[in-house]
């Protein structure tokens, strides 16, 4: 009896899915008269699809994503702080292990790459890592927002926007600079300025990597016939890999450069003098 019921409901679901597929293909039309080049261009530059920020100004959808991700993360962090952290035990449970591994990973990375000065670096890499990773995964939710023209747009990853990527890339550079100044003073500034290409490379690496995922997704969704099954591979897997890889790369690079400029250089100079 149960078997019959199950197979009947499966058949009904399959038929419904087929009907929906047929319907969507039949009703498919060109995206508001835009051709593929235009869609791609707008995905990169956001010239048309802007969202109003509380009526004050029109901003790219990524900024709204950024604010949303921040709000969600802070809310979750608050819940964890109130309900989970006071119940921490010396022998940790599963969720405690996850939290401790996360914090331990970033603080450990900072310690290993920058042994002289790493407290602030640990905090920064932790926050940047969490923001990049979860911000990119936010793209998967496909939260819809209303554009200024009245259309709807799926909120992209916060850093798939050039402004967001520049912000994080430059901030990382400033963090590295601060480490150099704090440890080596004026010499630290010199050491950091030597890596003048770093902010550009960091920003555009982040932007390019995250944008590529977005573009592939746009490309796939442009044609309705490609919108079935294929996105599971190209969108979801790409996004998952990007989320982890970009979070890892940016935090690792920041830690390495921070460690390099916050290294003591007086001893080396003395050694060189002695050798001479």
């Amino acid at each position: 009896m149960d078997k019959h019921k199950r197979s009947r409901s499966l058949i009904i679901m399959f038929v419904a899915a087929l009907a929906l597929l047929e319907l969507s293909i039949l009703t498919a039309r060109e995206k508001e008269g835009m051709d593929i080049a235009e869609v791609m261009r707008d995905a990169v530059l956001h010239e048309k699809e802007k969202i109003s920020l509380f009526g004050m100004m029109d901003v790219n959808p990524s900024l709204i994503s950024g604010f949303t991700v921040t709000a969600i993360l802070l809310f979750i962090a608050l819940l964890i702080r109130i309900f989970v952290i006071p119940k921490f035990k010396y022998v940790p449970g599963k969720f405690q292990i996850v939290l401790e591994t996360l914090v331990g990973y970033f603080s450990g990375m900072s310690k290993s790459h920058s042994p002289h000065r790493n407290t602030f670096l640990g905090v920064y890499t932790f926050c940047a890592g969490v923001y990049i990773c979860l911000g990119t995964l936010f793209e998967l939710l496909g939260v819809q927002a209303v554009t200024v023209h009245g259309g709807s747009v799926a909120l992209p990853a916060p850093l798939a926007d050039i402004n967001g990527a520049i912000a994080i890339g430059c901030l990382s550079y400033l963090v590295i600079l601060s480490g150099g100044i704090a440890e080596n003073g004026a010499k630290g500034i010199g050491l950091t300025l030597k890596e003048f290409s770093l902010p550009v490379s960091m920003s555009f690496r982040l932007f390019g990597a995250l944008l590529s995922g977005l573009l592939v997704t746009e490309l796939v969704y442009f044609d309705i016939r490609l919108s079935y099954l294929l996105p599971v591979v190209v969108a979801v897997l790409f996004t998952l890999i990007h989320a982890l890889v970009q979070a890892y790369v940016l935090t690792l690079l920041t830690a390495i450069f921070y460690g390099e400029v916050s290294e003591h250089h007086e001893k080396q100079a003395k050694k060189r003098l002695k050798k001479a």
């Binding site: 900024l63 950024g66 604010f67 991700v69 921040t70 993360l73 802070l74 962090a77 608050l78 964890i80 702080r81 939290l99 914090v103 640990g122 905090v123 920064y124 932790f126 926050c127 940047a128 969490v130 923001y131 916060p158 912000a167 994080i168 901030l171």
Partner: peptide
């Protein structure tokens, strides 16, 4: 501003 806000919050609440 968004990221600094997030960093501050995450530092105080979680890290």
């Amino acid at each position: 501003f968004n990221f600094v806000l997030l960093s501050g919050g995450l530092y105080i609440l979680l890290y």
